[in-house]
Design a protein around this nucleic acid. Sequence first.
DNA 1: CGGGGGCGTTGATTCAGATCAACGCGGCCC
DNA 2: GGGCCGCGTTGATCTGAATCAACGCCCCCG
Lengths: 236, 236
Amino acid sequence: MQATRGSGGVKVTGPLLAAASAEARVRLLMNAHALAVPRGRLIIAQDAEADRLFILLQGSVGLGFADEDGAATMVEILAPGEAFPLSAALLRLPHPVSATALAPCRLVAIPAEDLREAAAADPALMHTAIEQMTRQWRLLADQVVDLKTRDATQRAARFLLRRLSAPRGAVEIPEPRGAIAARLGMTPESLSRALHGLEAAGLLRLHARRVDVPDRAALLRAAQPRAGASQGARRV
Amino acid sequence: MQATRGSGGVKVTGPLLAAASAEARVRLLMNAHALAVPRGRLIIAQDAEADRLFILLQGSVGLGFADEDGAATMVEILAPGEAFPLSAALLRLPHPVSATALAPCRLVAIPAEDLREAAAADPALMHTAIEQMTRQWRLLADQVVDLKTRDATQRAARFLLRRLSAPRGAVEIPEPRGAIAARLGMTPESLSRALHGLEAAGLLRLHARRVDVPDRAALLRAAQPRAGASQGARRV
DNA sequence: CGGGGGCGTTGATTCAGATCAACGCGGCCC
DNA sequence: GGGCCGCGTTGATCTGAATCAACGCCCCCG
């Protein structure tokens, strides 16, 4: 199968492939194949062997953690362009998080073997892979800070802000509310109240699977912790 | 300075050095120097350039995040053997978290330059570096799960458990309570209550800078979420 | 075309943990 | 040796968010 274009005519891109040398890219895509996944489908089971690297082209993928005692959490929600599970595929390790399609997805699967060979042969690719892993770490660190220092409304606001770069515009929210609530560390009820609270404050306008933000700066202001907030905050 | 041994006669070890080839190790330690740091001292300022890799030999280092609006959090507490900031040193990037000595520390500093050269020349070292970064990611993911699904007492119990491998024994807690509370996402008051609650339940015995755990299994049981607990938990 | 069920929302109540306040103890400096 | 200050602890109160409960809506299926 021709993999430089997904079956929908979508160009296969992302930081990883962009950084790879021409030869490395050929190796990566040689045995790659595109696939479409319907919403709700499990893409990677928890603790499964990482035999393929996925690159998300379209849609939304949730990284979940199911504790041995049944507690499940959404650790991260991936946007198009992201590759996963990078480190597990590089190290040929089982990866402890499951991946689920939170919206209809289109992705590319690359054999882990090819990734390893390409990374070993191409320093730039290896460098970018490390960069991506570093980025993932920082995103998680941000999330930890959010959970420790910001309340439900602020977290909801920041979630929307991360999806909006323009000073005003629409944010698409294809994933179910419950998944977003799990990602933000709150119940669906609380998320609903937070969102409607922001709407009542005139900071956004809610639609079915879209949110309109009239003024990014104003929403950003609402996402900041009130002065004097503390909690996990500490000066040692 | 002879760096294969710290000035206290401590052997310089850790996963990174253990995995490096003989030549790579020479390169890493060639310009390395040992240093001692008193409690409370800032080791790396936030957003500083990562010109050195530190390996913690003794003591405890806290990775902190100070938000632009003043909210500060303890993202991670490093134990002896850990190297930081690995990814920033590998990529020659500024790293957004500060590092503070939470107890008197002894560490080794390796020029980032040497690390990069050694990693480029030694695939095993590079492999281990990626392994360590992966480990760091998983620790953070665990922390996210903790914050989302476990209450203060359970988080405190799990924090102690991670420091105790034996079925019973003593856990040293050299770092100030406030730093631990910040790491666990609660106030010092809540940590105190959690700890004393566990002691009242007979699961541990509190001392100044030490906690005795008579029965690891029992404490582990107390750290599990009650059946039916939910919160961020979601099945999509 | 008429149920049925999942998802999102809203309301009432409860509870864990933050906040505010005060105190004891120990180390350190003077 | 005495007083001060920072840390850890304890108590009282308050609040944000979970929980419990119920309802409307839309989409899918029969």
